[in-house]
């Protein structure tokens, strides 16, 4: 999700996150509610694509939505055009199988719906920083502890990716062969996973310590800490502290 966000100076980016969510869901309801096969495609092309252009993310928007769509589209067209139960109009024969017009139509309708739904949500994600999105949700009553867990998890992903590539480099520099047969690759796994997991655990511990210090600065008087040891309790402390903080710790981005 954080990898999707594209920072651009645009009016769409400046909209309140909930407004964008409302637009996304509105477009989806409209498209599905009308029940006409081609409406989702028209809305995608005439509403979502121009909006993405306005937000200066048209390139990534179209590319990512097509990438999401492709596997669905292929399976829908293959299965529905060949095996649609009420298909009578035969377009072509492939040995014992036949392509039926009703199936193709059904697959088209399904595909454009998926395209619209994926596109509508994608537009919000591309133009809204996850931190802001969650701040907006928390202000409307979304549980802050859950929001914290989501935000930190999202932020850890790119960090982990970067850490993993550095570890791979460090071990290759010590002569570890990472390419070749399955056995060679399997042997390379432990030296890569070890530092990655251990490093991430240390990270979580540091995070929880930082969070504790931060929360204590805010409410200096009443901060009971969990009695579990620092290693076992790190995750629990994070959630606990997030609960105490009641949302004023959310990144101001």
């Amino acid at each position: 999700m954080i990898a999707l966000y594209q920072h651009r100076p645009s009016p769409v980016h400046q909209l309140h996150p909930l407004t964008k969510l409302a637009i996304s869901f509105g477009v989806i309801v409209l498209a599905l509610g009308l029940g006409v096969d081609w409406v989702p495609l028209v809305l995608y092309l005439l509403v979502l694509v121009p909006l993405s252009a306005l937000a200066r993310v048209a390139g990534p928007f179209v590319r990512t939505s097509l990438r999401i769509l492709l596997p669905f589209a292929i399976s829908l067209f293959v299965i529905q055009s060949l095996f649609f139960p009420e298909g009578n109009t035969i377009l072509a024969r492939l040995g014992p199988l036949s392509i039926k017009a009703e199936g193709v139509r059904f697959a088209f309708a399904g595909t454009v719906r998926i395209l619209l739904m994926a596109g509508a949500l994608l537009l919000t994600l591309l133009t809204t920083h996850p931190g802001l999105l969650l701040t907006g949700l928390v202000q409307k009553g979304f549980p802050p502890a859950l929001a914290y867990v989501i935000v930190t998890t999202l932020q850890i992903v790119p960090q982990m990716r970067e850490r993993a590539s550095t570890i791979i480099d460090a071990q290759r520099a010590r002569g570890l062969e990472t390419q070749g047969s399955l056995l060679v690759r399997a042997r390379a796994l432990l030296p890569l996973i070890g530092p990655l997991v251990l490093g991430s655990l240390l990270d979580v511990e540091e995070r929880s310590l930082a969070l504790e210090a931060h929360v204590q600065r805010h409410n200096a008087q009443d901060q009971p800490l969990p009695s579990a040891g620092p290693h076992l309790g790190a995750g629990a402390q994070m959630v606990d502290c997030a609960g105490h903080a009641r949302g004023d710790w959310l990144p101001a981005c």
């Binding site: 850490r163 550095t166 570890i167 480099d169 460090a170 071990q171 290759r172 520099a173 010590r174 002569g175 570890l176 062969e177 990472t178 390419q179 432990l190 030296p191 070890g194 530092p195 251990l198 490093g199 240390l202």
Partner: peptide, 22 residues
């Protein structure tokens, strides 16, 4: 030559030991 092969000629000590110790 692969990095693993070049490692026989050039040793590289990374900045953060946490990235290699296992």
């Amino acid at each position: 030559h692969t990095v693993a092969k070049l490692a026989a000629r050039v040793g590289y000590v990374f900045q953060h030991p946490e990235h290699q110790i296992f």
